[in-house]
Amino acid sequence: MRTYKLDSTYVLNYATAATINEDKGELRGKLDTVFDDIYCDEKNYELAEQKLMKTSIENVLKKSNLRLNDLELIVSGDLMNQLMTTYYGLRHISIPVIGIYSACSSSALGLIIGSNYAVNGKKVLVTTSSHYAAAERQFRYPNEYGLQKKEVVTTTTSGAGSIILTSKKHPIQIEAYTLGVIQDFNYKDVNDMGGAMSIAAYDTITTHFKDTNRSFKDYDYVVTGDLGSLGLSVLKALFKENGYTDSLDNLVDLGTMIYKGCPECYMGGSGCACSMLMLCGKYLPMIENGKINSLLYVPTGALHNPIAVFQKQSIPSIAHAIVFRKAV
């Protein structure tokens, strides 16, 4: 059994911060703070990402009328080496911090860890962030380097999202979660993270269905994190090849949606912030407003390491699933 049920974990509030690029597609007008450029009034990209994370935390505290000291714990994830955004961004606060790395699936892992601490009325803040230029610089090439990108790449999202979890009843409940297993099918195309991660999404979703005896029709939406359009089509093909006859219409990918109508974004968005921004900007409000009742949230992470890639290693991937539901 990789699925665990939670009795009383609720989303107290949620908030986002991002840049002008994220304010164009699906999330237009749905973000709490939008910075006009990717520097976010800071000196460099790394500081900009820290600012995004801090802004999203400030936003969620403001929205829920809390102070930092009301929180029990912060669980935070990002893509930078040594979790730079988390540890440098949060170094002046006086409450415990757990830094986590699970690539772009960090938002799910953070919520899973956070939900285990959010008991007896305690409040736990979960935050993840990523930044296009900072990630590009660390994982790929300098930003001004003139390289024709491959058609299959995804674009790292610049932004951060924060969610406060509590055990007191609120409109959005986290009902269960399914932990992912690291998957690797010896795939080595470092440009195509979506293809590499599709197997992890497939494994976690099917395991979740088996553990809970549910299927696609039990959820209003099953959303994957950041597979991009190629990864999503591979995932759908995997379901069909393995004899799933359900309609896959409610299986959507957040990375494909976030930059809708942006040809320079290639296969779509990715990064820790991609799934988090879409969750906080679009789907949690939908649950809160009663537009949908249930959501299976499956962020996917490509666990690749640039050094391992140069050493001709393949790309492992992981996905964790979380069930959000309108509390009854």
Binding site: N143, E144, Y145, G146, Q148
Partner: peptide
């Protein structure tokens, strides 16, 4: 401007000395 041009013209700008100059300049800037 260069990275935007390079996205369009690809190897046409990458192979001449322009590609070499850009790789150094972009690394330095970054």
């Amino acid at each position: 401007v260069y990275d935007k041009l390079a996205t369009i013209f690809g190897a046409g700008l990458f192979i001449p000395i322009t590609g070499f100059a850009n790789s150094m300049c972009s690394s330095a800037l970054e």
